[in-house]
Simulated scan of single mutants.
Amino acid sequence: MTDYTIAIYCFMDDYLKISQPHIDIRRKVSDAEILTTALLSAQYFYGNQHTTCQYMQQHHGMAKIDKSNFNRHLHRLSNTLIRIFLALGESLKQLNTASRYLIDSFPVAVCKNIRIGRCKLLKHESYRGYNASKRQYFYGFKVQVVTTADGIPVDYLITAGSIHDNTALQAMSLYLPQGSELYADSAYTHYELEDLYEECDQVRLLVERKSNSKRQDNAAMRFLKKHYRKRIETCFSQVTARFPGKIHAVTPQGFLLKVVLFLFAFTFNKTLSTT
């Protein structure tokens, strides 16, 4: 855990020194310490940032900071956190010589269905979605994730729960290297989009075909699509295993920030373990 903490801090500190050279040295807690604490909370403390602050103060000499100040600083750095995640994703794309990618989504509920009427975090029917794999409805968000063939996330998009995967794919700005292959399940079926990606970006969108599809695959291609897509299901299981029973947040922005932290922490951990 100590090695992981040091690795995160060095990574964050180096990035911030390059992107933000003018830092107020009078501050007791640096931006790198704030981001390190946030990622540690997602990796080891089920998103409990107050407990993580106590750990950092006791074991790594971070100055004492109260909960409200920590949240205020973290929300101020939310855009920086997203930029770092996307920059890391671009680096992973360059290192992914196989050029195989996977895309799928997983739901994140803000409350149990029986409490939807009393939910104060969200107030709209657009957040009511359906999880086909578990055959149940949920109330919250849907996270679209693009991973490498090894299951390392490189890009994401968070939408309301009712947004279909096909619609979310069209809204994403996918910047994959030329010659890449993107494997997806049948929910992403869109023949025109497949042709557009291959013609304009030289990216093959390989979607699992339904039985009534107009473009059927041969047996070998069906096997390859099913084989490569198994990795992303494992990735989602590992990400959600870090979730607490209920993600505590006061605002939708705070809730989404914690979801991004869980995804970022998993990506960083996988990157360290494979290097």
Rank of each mutant, 00 (worst) to 15 (best):
I18Q: 14
E192R: 10
H60K: 08
S99D: 04
L81C: 10
D24L: 03
G140N: 01
E33K: 07
F262A: 05
S180L: 00
A109S: 11
N269P: 02
H164T: 08
A32F: 10
I103A: 03
L193G: 04
H227W: 10
I114D: 13
S126K: 05
T52A: 12
K210T: 06
D155C: 12
V143L: 13
F138M: 01
G47W: 05
Y15D: 09
D24C: 02
K93W: 05
G117N: 15
F236M: 00
K112Q: 11
N71M: 10
H50P: 02
L257G: 09
C235W: 12
R204I: 13
T36G: 11
I65M: 12
F243E: 00
A171E: 14
F268K: 08
P177D: 00
I103Y: 01
F264D: 03
K246G: 10
V143M: 14
Y156I: 07
K93R: 15
H75F: 14
T36Q: 08
L35K: 03
K120W: 05
Q216Y: 02
N48T: 02
Q57R: 11
K64V: 12
D14G: 10
C235L: 15
V29E: 05
D195R: 13
S186E: 04
L95F: 11
S126I: 12
Y191H: 06
M1W: 06
G140S: 07
A38D: 00
